[in-house]
Design a protein around this nucleic acid. Structure first.
Length: 659
DNA sequence: GGGTTGAGCATTG
DNA sequence: TTCCACAATGCTCAACCC
């Protein structure tokens, strides 16, 4: 049944070693002639550039597995015994976090896009159908799945598997409409449900079960029936368990139009998890499965615990922790925080070309699309990543961090062109652009929380007469504090202990840099940039406080640095009280250096980031970075790990990193 | 030692 | 005839900087 077991390829059956994702079992694919599917997929792919790339990736994976085997063999008995101690301790710690008090429900719509299309066109009922086109299909209905057709399969292969397959083009607005209908139902059971995608969601139904005196299974039945009637006939499957990880596994068990309930007691969970294949776990994909299986002999979740010492010896701590938690049937049970998007991107595939003019025009199109999407969502970002897929399917990415936040297609295109130019000549079949590092990342607002700025205001009575613009600034800086920082700052301003006070003062120092970043964007979605923003800011201040400034000329040709109200830098909005003499000097130096840098390399360009980093770094050094990198370390505690790397030599094997 | 940045890769739907 | 998408997220590592 497992694709991995077919790796014993014989010369007469070369397709048996061609492990594509399409041969992995999916709901509705039981009884499919897997060998036939594998053979056809192999025959149609053989010799293509895509196939060659797959072979290259496969070879790389085998190398990784081999390398891990070697490292495994080198482990001594005492090494393993030491790692076992680590495992034993972690098991105790993880067990202490086990929470069997919650009831989580995972809902997954059945063949969602295909079902929606059938709903709006009943003549498709009972016929094999796929949503998508000849290059790629998004989903297939259950009739098509019987032929081995499935999501993410190229349409031309799907047609070969099922010559009568009907193709229906993707219609996102339609799916969004139906998705909204299902979400209306979900909200009745958990107003804070987590939408995984258009067609799936996690609901914490603990309260609704308690209030109505119903079991998780009864609620699931009711919800599914409600989804069916509200959508006019769409079916879904559900899983009920103590945590989200288990609930997701459960929803797949009786698909389609079914449900599975896993009782909330430890021994039931452990029995359930013991024989569960690792691939069933969200986050463990083809590569991880092969590495764990072929290098370490780990096939089931139980094996993760039994071979825990190997995992801790060979993988990073966070990966090993994840594996061990899986082996214990532990998953997230908390009410998740609001998550905001981290990046936005746009990419297009086309016939491979090395024609620079053509590539530039594609790039311009994509920059325009991306800029449009960003404006639509009111986003500005400062890191641009160019993604290229060469004619041989090799993926390359090149990134640059800009000096300022932007969403303009001109800015994006200007820097993207530079990045692309550095790669030429090359034949390319896909170009993608991604923008990340949003100004939003530091805007997790929660008006109920105390803020450093409030503290500053209370501390400094000379700033009691703040005008409206200042109030706006305060709100912006309030929004600048990340969740982590807000946690540390949850104090009542009237009852502040010495330690809290000390913390607050330390935060005051660091908050200036954050304020600086936030203020650049506080007027969104008006999308003011650079000089416009500065002008606007100055206009807003001119009537009340322009006269109350001290000027420091830092460069002959540039606008002098002014401390508005004796407090705030007119160039970037950073706030530094007069007593911060050294910091102010450093700040002036920063603007001077920035200007010199601009003179050297042209405006807002940062394609040689090192020197720039040095300058910006200096600026940040003043803020005694207590701040975590936003959304990285903290989020890793809440979001499933998707990739697993070994402790060392991760790149030494493939060594293909390009500089 | 710890933070940032850039690059590569895995995973998901 | 058609010949393997797109969007988003996060982990890890190396290099660099303070």
């Amino acid at each position: 049944m497992d694709e991995g077991e077919s790796s014993t390829n014989s010369p007469s059956r070369p397709w048996e070693s061609y492990n594509t994702v399409f041969t992995n079992a999916k709901a509705g694919m039981e009884g499919v002639d897997k060998e036939k599917v594998q053979r056809i997929v192999y025959e149609m792919s053989k010799g293509s550039k895509y196939f060659q790339n797959e072979e290259r990736k496969e070879a790389l994976m085998k190398q990784k597995i081999e390398h891990m085997r070697e490292r495994c063999a080198k482990l001594s008995a005492s090494d393993l015994s030491n790692y076992q101690k680590v495992v034993d301790r972690r098991i105790l710690e993880l067990e202490a976090t086990r929470d069997l008090s919650r009831v989580w429900l995972h809902v997954d719509m059945d063949a969602f896009y295909a079902a929606v299309e059938t709903l709006s066109n009943p003549s498709l009922k009972g016929k094999p159908m796929a949503v998508g086109g000849l290059s790629m299909i998004s989903t297939a209905n259950y009739e098509a799945r019987k032929f081995g057709v499935r999501a993410a399969m190229p349409g031309f292969i799907a047609r070969k598997l099922c010559p009568d397959l009907i193709f229906v083009p993707v219609d996102f607005p339609k799916y969004t409409h139906y998705s909204d209908l299902t979400r209306k139902v979900f909200r009745n059971y958990d107003p804070n449900f987590i939408a995984g995608s258009l067609d799936e969601a996690y609901l914490d139904i603990t309260e609704v079960c308690r209030e109505r005196g119903l079991s998780g299974g009864e609620i699931a039945e009711e919800l599914r029936s409600s989804v069916h009637s509200e959508t006019g006939g769409l079916t879904c499957s559900a899983g009920v368990a103590a945590n989200r990880l288990l609930a997701k596994v459960c929803s797949d068990i009786n698909k389609p139009n079914g449900q599975f309930v896993l009782q909330n007691d430890r021994s039931t969970v452990m029995t359930f998890i013991s024989s569960l294949p690792i691939r069933k776990i969200g986050g463990i994909g083809k590569v991880t499965e092969h590495i764990l299986k072929d290098a370490l002999g780990i096939k089931t979740c139980e094996d993760m615990v039994l071979k825990g010492s190997l995992l801790y010896a060979l993988f990073t701590q966070s990966s090993a922790d994840f594996f061990l938690a899986v082996g214990l049937g532990l998953g997230k049970t908390d009410t998740p925080e609001v998550r905001s998007r981290k990046s936005i991107s746009s990419e297009r595939t086309f016939a491979a070309t090395g024609d620079e003019r053509l590539l530039n025009s594609k790039l311009a199109e994509i920059a325009e699309m991306l800029s449009h999407d960003m404006k639509k969502e009111g986003l500005m970002a400062r890191t641009l990543t160019l993604k290229l897929k060469t004619a041989s399917f090799e993926i390359r990415s090149r990134a640059v961090s800009l000096q300022r936040y932007t969403c303009s297609s001109e800015d994006i295109l200007k820097h993207a062109t530079k990045l692309l130019k550095a790669e030429l000549p090359v034949s390319i079949r896909l170009i993608g652009l991604r923008m990340s590092q949003f100004s939003e990342e530091i805007r997790h607002s929660d008006p109920s929380q105390g803020t450093i700025t409030k503290f500053i205001v209370q501390k400094d009575s000379s700033r009691q007469n703040l005008d409206d613009n200042d109030s706006f600034d305060l709100d912006a800086s309030k929004n600048c504090l990340s969740n982590n920082e807000r946690l540390s700052l949850s104090y009542t301003s009237h009852d502040t202990s010495y330690d809290q006070l000390k913390d607050v003062v330390e935060y005051e120092e660091q908050s200036v840099t954050q304020n600086q970043e936030c203020k650049k964007e506080e007027k969104r979605p008006q999308v003011l940039e650079g000089d416009d923003l500065l002008r606007k800011h100055k206009e807003s201040k001119s009537d009340t406080s322009a006269e109350k400034t001290e000027a420091v000329s830092i460069f002959p040709q540039m606008e002098p640095l002014l401390w508005v109200d004796g407090y705030k830098c007119n160039l970037c909005g950073i706030e530094l009280p007069p007593s911060f003499v050294e910091e102010r000097q450093e700040h002036s130096d920063f603007h001077l250096a920035q200007r010199l840098q601009n003179e050297e390399s042209g405006p807002s360009s940062s394609t040689t980031p090192t020197s720039k980093r040095r300058i910006l770094g200096k600026e940040k050094a003043n803020s005694k970075t207590k701040k975590q990198k936003p959304n990285q370390k903290d989020d890793s505690k809440h979001i499933p790990i998707h990739t697993f790397f070994t402790k060392s030599n991760q790149n030494s094997n493939d060594g293909t990193q390009k500089k």
